[in-house]
Design a protein around this nucleic acid. Structure first.
Lengths: 232, 232
DNA sequence: CGTAAATTGCTCGAATTCTTGCAAGCCGTC
DNA sequence: GACGGCTTGCAAGAATTCGAGCAATTTACG
């Protein structure tokens, strides 16, 4: 029995609500379109009009946007049952980021007019979507929390638990392994820093036995120490 | 006739949707509670359970959270017809920030169970709330865009147009004045920087005639120059 | 009007980051 | 097994921010 279950409450909730939403869509007869993307494929681009609700059902996907000329920041790293994309029921909405498949993934898209019809027919749909929206909002608040401190060390100390929380697998020893191959460059894009700074901080954490890196996968060995680094 | 209308499309949309939402609440008989707060009063605190939908109907209000020990970051500065607060229809939601009145303000709170009932009775309510949620999401994305670059100058160059956009008044010459008294400390809290850095950058912008400061109020004189500073 | 408080302007050194460049290591593929 | 590409490690200089301290100015309030 795990003391720290790798699947946390809100992850479970998200999957549940999302699955039920798809079931309701199916019942009501919403014309959803499932499409498979290969790693590197773009789902949509910044500036495109948002005319539907996107649901990731398999694989890993990232939302990113350019900044300061030539850099890229990863705004969200999505796993199955995350929703994404802008859609405004009143007025127009533009996508605020690029969506790109990190691994092969399956994406379900529900066109705006169908979603709207579904909400009118079955209020339950609205409640589910709003819960999923709320979770999306929380993810942005988490990102902001990572970006507020300026030191790369503090930013990473805030980010790693989030990744572990979302992509983590308890490995039996109470440690949590992040089940993703993340390069230092990938992490740098998530905390809006540089590859070198991430390398330096990661090495320091590793030498202190706070984390462990094996074949590109990070394991959190000392969550308490990370927490302390997170709020200096 | 204004070339750059100070009230932009999404501001108008937000007010419209929000007013109609309140009208619908009234029609359906939702027991909303309006309360007046004096400047400095707390509406809620971080960690409190979110059990309702908050709507600001008058005044200015800020959401902020502490970081790096003793600092405070302003996450959002709200004007009338902004909504705020977390509420999860499934599961529990905690407030992720402190909400505090900047000026005297009026806040309408619609308890969660009533909102839920209203959505079930009248799907139109769901559509309005979702549009307002979407706009809230965009505001966070805007904040993140401000926080990605590291230089205070770039962050401010991104922030000022947002403030002008939201709190701006065209003064006839095509310039936009931010109709708020903002201290350098206030601005520093919004871009997660220090008061000194903001002072320095603001003086530099002023000497270049990019902005003008009169009795604590900032006027944007050269939006194009700001844009260029915003993406170096 | 006058005092007290808040805000702004300025400086200096310490700390951190970014940038650039290159070498060594790891991996997958051919 | 050898090659090429990606990833990681390291270093030195430039730039920026941060922090502390203090004076000048403005604003607020009695």
């Amino acid at each position: 029995m795990d003391i720290n279950p790798p699947v946390h409450e809100y992850t479970r909730l998200q999957e549940e609500e999302c699955r039920e939403l798809l079931r309701l869509f199916d019942q009501i007869g919403v014309a959803t379109a499932e499409r498979v993307y290969s790693a590197g494929d773009a789902i949509y681009r910044e500036g495109e009009y948002g005319d539907g609700l996107y649901i990731l059902t398999s694989g890993v996907l990232k939302l990113f946007r350019p900044y300061s000329g030539s850099k890229e920041a990863t705004l969200r790293l999505l796993k199955p049952w995350d929703i994404f994309g802008h859609l405004a029921f009143a007025g127009d909405a533009k996508q605020q980021a690029y969506a790109e498949a990190v691994t092969e993934c399956k994406v379900v898209k529900a066109p705006k007019i169908f979603v709207e019809r579904a909400i009118r027919q079955e209020p339950q749909v609205a409640l589910k979507i709003m819960t999923l929206f709320e979770l999306r909002l929380v993810q942005y608040e988490e990102l902001i929390r990572c970006l507020l401190p300026r030191e790369t060390e503090v930013r990473l100390a805030n980010l790693l638990p989030l990744l572990a929380h979302k992509f983590g697998e308890s490995d039996g020893n109470g440690d949590i392994a992040i089940d993703l191959r993340l390069t230092h460059q990938d992490l740098a894009a998530m905390v809006a820093s540089t590859r070198e700074s991430v390398t330096k901080v990661l090495n320091e954490m590793r030498s202190r036995n706070v984390i462990e890196v094996r074949s590109g996968r990070i394991t959190l060995k000392d969550s308490r120490a990370l927490e302390e680094l997170g709020r200096p």
